[in-house]
Simulated assay, not measured.
Amino acid sequence: MRFGSLIHDMSRLRRVCFDRELAPLGITRSQWWVLAFISRNDGLPQTRLANELDAGKVALGSLIDRLQTAGFVERIPDAKDRRVKRVFLTDKARQIIKDIAPVNDSFNAKILAGIPREDLELTARTLYRMKQNLIALTNGDEGDDGGDGLD
């Protein structure tokens, strides 16, 4: 089996196609990804945001610069440590996140078309287990939580 190649190819194709879907909204998938994450963690320090997204600080800084120029985020100095910049969504960002939701739903429906629900559930469980195994390897152990990823 060629799991690695299939996962890589599927991920790359999904990114390319989703960027195409988002183009009419004037936003990229990378920008949307950051906005969606911030929407669940509004006000995180920029350095922690880079760590959470597993993105380089310089690359994320450039992306946030573009988001700030476009009016999607604000950087506000931390009240206790002015060297720390916290990143907050603007109302414009909250609106585009709402606008993207139906695009995302439609896109996912297209790529999942013709796949039985049972197959999707098995695939989700398998990918979740693979993710847990990779996390365990990253942490230097071989155990997992035994969950199925569907909670």
Rank of each mutant, 00 (worst) to 15 (best):
D148C: 15
T47Q: 05
S5C: 05
D54S: 12
D81A: 11
I135Q: 04
D145F: 05
Q95T: 08
D99S: 06
L127F: 14
L89Y: 08
V73W: 00
G149D: 01
T138R: 09
R20S: 09
E74L: 11
A50V: 02
K98P: 09
L127Q: 13
L49A: 01
D141Q: 12
L67V: 11
W32T: 12
G61T: 03
G56P: 00
P24K: 03
K110T: 13
Q68V: 09
F37M: 04
G56W: 00
A124Q: 13
L22M: 01
V103Y: 03
I76S: 07
D19Q: 09
P24V: 09
K98M: 13
F18R: 00
V16P: 06
I111D: 02
R82N: 08
H8P: 03
R125E: 14
P102V: 11
T138P: 00
N139P: 01
V73L: 01
G147M: 07
R75H: 09
T90A: 02
E118A: 15
L67G: 06
T28F: 01
G26D: 04
L122W: 13
R14Y: 12
G56T: 00
L53I: 03
A79P: 15
I97D: 05
W32Q: 13
K57T: 14
R29L: 06
F107A: 02
R12W: 03
R86M: 13
L44V: 15
L120W: 05
V73Y: 00
T138C: 08
Q132N: 12
V34N: 07
S11P: 02
E74F: 09
N41V: 07
F72G: 00
N51H: 15
L13M: 15
Q31W: 10
N108P: 00
R86G: 11
E121R: 10
F72H: 07
F107R: 03
I100C: 05
I111Q: 03
R15Y: 14
K57D: 10
L112N: 14
G26K: 04
R20P: 00
R66A: 15
A59Y: 08
N51S: 15
R29A: 08
A109K: 11
A23N: 11
L137D: 08
F3P: 06
V73K: 00
G147P: 04
N41S: 14
E121I: 14
K57W: 05
T47M: 03
T90Q: 01
R15T: 15
N108F: 13
L49I: 01
G147I: 06
H8T: 14
M1N: 08
Q132M: 14
L137S: 10
V16N: 11
T47A: 08
A23V: 10
L137Q: 10
T47K: 06
R83N: 13
I7W: 03
I115N: 03
V84Q: 01
R94L: 08
G4P: 02
N139I: 06
N139H: 12
